[in-house]
């Protein structure tokens, strides 16, 4: 897939995230918009996983530790063919498997997540098993910045470094905001890079909306042999819709009909601009 196609996909994904959240009248809008470019790159450019090989023990694994941004993952999984996209019209409805956090009832999901601070340890265990079985696969997890306050993440980081899990890559969706406010006001996370490096990981930083740069970095992981990789993806919460960007209420805000139309028209303009460039 070309970088141009990836960029177009990102905008399409954003439109779909909004569509299904709008339809469900529920969802985590801001976080889904901030992490969707990361998912786009992983599923379309980096990982060896698809509906065809999903039962193969050698497939790459993705676990969304920040489970609440599940709408982005649903949209991407549908796009790569795990299930029909129209299923998402049942998002968050009674009896639907497309609930508010990932579950394995949905094809393509590796893990049930949602309670924060669980994904990284599970991924480390999975990466450890792959090492023991000599399977050349990679395990990826997406962490939220607010989630980094969970001590369990740091326990898992110690272990992953100790066992030299260079088949493990954690990506931080670093949009600098969490439900109550800015990370810096809730509980300071900085200096993050130094902390993670001190825990024995190889760290890179990237613009989390630059699909080209992220694909380059992730396709060259591990960043350092013998060390797990940590990619700090600097993102913007609510990215792509001007009135949602960095505005706290969009953490799980649902757009009104007018806001929805406005958001779509903004994204359509972006789409047009990109297409013209081609």
């Amino acid at each position: 897939m070309t970088n141009q196609e990836l960029k177009l996909k990102s905008i399409e994904y954003r439109k779909k995230i909004l569509k299904y959240i709008y339809h469900a009248k529920a969802g985590h809008t801001g976080g889904s918009l901030s992490c969707v470019d990361i998912l786009n790159v992983l599923y379309n450019k980096v990982m060896n996983v698809s509906p065809a090989n999903f039962d193969d023990p050698g497939r790459d694994r993705y676990v969304q530790s920040k489970g609440h941004s599940v709408e982005a993952l649903y949209v991407v999984l549908a796009d790569v063919g795990f299930f029909p996209e129209e299923d998402l019209l049942t998002l968050c409805r009674y009896k639907s498997p497309y609930i508010g956090h990932p579950t394995r009832k949905v094809r393509g999901m590796e893990q049930n997540t949602g309670a924060l601070g669980h994904g990284l340890a599970i991924c480390a265990g999975n990466a450890l098993a792959a090492k023991k079985d000599n399977l050349p696969l990679n395990v990826y997890t997406l962490l939220g910045d607010g989630e980094m306050a969970e001590g369990s993440n740091w326990e898992a980081m110690m272990l992953a470094a100790h066992y030299k899990l260079d088949n493990l890559c954690a990506i931080l969706d670093y949009n600098k905001q969490q439900i109550t406010g800015a990370n810096a006001d809730v509980i300071g996370l900085e200096p993050l890079r130094q902390k993670v490096e001190a825990f024995g990981w190889a760290v890179k930083e990237v613009d989390g909306h630059d699909v080209e740069a992220m694909a380059d970095l992730l396709n060259n992981a591990p960043f350092e042999e013998g060390k797990p990789s940590f990619l700090i993806a600097h993102t913007i919460k609510g990215k792509g819709v001007s009135f949602m960007e960095k505005v706290l209420k969009w953490h799980h805000g649902v757009p009104s009909p007018e806001q929805y139309e406005l958001a779509l028209s903004e994204l359509d303009r972006e789409l047009e601009k990109l297409t013209v460039q081609v």
Partner: peptide
């Protein structure tokens, strides 16, 4: 080769165990 010392991090140990189980261990 089939022993994993996790240190005094029991919560982590349970998460690691869950991850190992996903790989058939």
């Amino acid at each position: 080769e089939r022993f994993i010392q996790t240190g005094i991090s029991e919560a982590n140990m349970m998460g690691i165990a869950a991850g190992l189980a996903t790989a058939g261990k």
